[in-house]
């Protein structure tokens, strides 16, 4: 099985909410999915046809646009062939044979290759914008409305994780800030991160390159500059390695490389180190924030040297997978298990 080379399925590498206990039993994403040879591979839930992901036809697309814009469109009324045939009495005579038949035909069955499910709303929560809250948009009437007798409505409990004064940023941003900080100057680091995000906002959107293993579930790259935190997160989480290699002493004075899996925070730290190392090598004497933002764009576009470092680590890990220590040699309480090493 080719899956054996992968320690954690990339599709499971979604962001965890803050203060999530990283116990593998509770989070199926962290438990390694071993596929025993006896069981056949699971069938895909939906057959994937060649026509599944294509764009809709012109009028369908126009209708969708109209739906988004929330107003009537002249395009739909005038543009479609059927409308033309309906409006113009002379048109059917000159129309080709195929289109003559279309208005009268009414099929009672669908000819679509795959049954289209109703649009499900459960998009991966991890990839949802870290700044966005899934609250409905409040109209102006509701805006004026307050609870009688109270100035503001009651807060929703439990309070969101970012409501704490000292932990108001997302976990990722806090880690980036602390990574950048030198000599305890946190305010300086925060303003640098701010500049990085502002830089990501104003830069042209990244161009996707074939073969860049970005995190699954990444939204369209053109939408990234509007959510710079997500932009940064995609860059860091995509390029972060799954394992680190430790050199253990082997027999006869040799060293044997042993891959160890990493926790989310550790993985991000490796990615940050690589990104900032690549940024520091830039020949242009730009400011730190500009250099770093440049490198983040390079990561998403797949031309950063961090990708090479990542693949190097992964290759070595695959080559030395025989050295993985499966039995740690001591009993560990299940609640103390922090990462999937113990279940390997």
């Amino acid at each position: 099985m080719s899956l054996r080379t992968i320690f954690v399925q990339p599709s499971k590498l979604c962001l965890l909410p803050r203060h999530t206990p990283l116990t593998p039993r509770l989070i199926p994403g962290l438990v390694r999915n071993l596929t025993p040879k006896s069981t056949p591979p699971p069938a895909p839930s939906k057959p994937v046809g060649p026509n599944q992901d294509v764009l809709r036809h012109a009028s369908g697309e126009a209708a969708a646009t109209v739906d988004i814009m929330g107003r009537k469109s002249l395009y739909l009324e005038h543009g479609t062939l059927i409308q033309m045939l309906k409006n113009d009495p002379t048109a059917p005579q000159n129309a080709p044979k195929v289109s003559k038949e279309i208005p009268r035909t009414k099929r009672e069955y669908s000819t679509a290759a795959t049954p289209i499910d109703p649009l499900s709303s459960n998009t991966p929560t991890g990839m949802a914008s870290s700044t966005a809250l899934a609250l409905p948009r409040v109209t102006s009437d509701a805006f004026a409305l307050t609870i009688p007798g109270a100035k503001y409505p009651l807060p929703q409990l439990p309070l969101p994780s970012c409501s704490h004064l000292k932990h108001r940023y997302s976990t990722l941003l806090e880690q980036v800030i602390n990574f950048i900080m030198i000599g305890g100057r946190k305010a300086k680091a925060e303003s640098l991160v701010d500049q990085i995000l502002a830089n990501l906002r104003t830069r042209p959107a990244p161009i996707s390159r074939e073969g860049t293993p970005l995190l699954p579930g990444t939204p369209a790259l053109s939408s990234l500059p509007l959510d710079p935190v997500q932009y940064l997160q995609i860059a860091i989480d995509s390029v972060s390695p799954l394992v680190k290699i430790l050199m253990l002493k082997g027999a006869g004075g040799t060293k044997r490389p042993v891959p160890y899996p990493l926790r989310l925070r550790q993985r991000r730290r490796f990615a940050l180190t690589w990104i900032s190392a690549a940024a520091d090598k830039k020949k242009d004497r730009l400011g730190f924030a500009e250099r770093f933002a440049d490198e983040v764009v390079a990561v998403v576009e797949g031309r950063s040297s961090a990708w090479e470092k990542r693949s190097q680590v992964h290759k070595l890990a695959v080559a030395s997978r025989a050295n993985v220590i499966i039995n740690p040699g001591r009993t560990v309480a299940p609640s103390k298990i922090k990462f999937p090493i113990a279940v390997l």
């Binding site: 914008s129 609250l135 948009r137 409040v138 409505p153 509007l226």
Partner: peptide
């Protein structure tokens, strides 16, 4: 202030919706 925040939100650069709690 509401007009300004709506403008930020419509420009797409502010992700949080402008509801009464956020605005206040």
């Amino acid at each position: 202030a509401k007009a300004l925040m709506d403008y930020y939100s419509e420009s797409g650069i502010m992700k949080a919706p402008v509801d009464i709690a956020t605005f206040s």
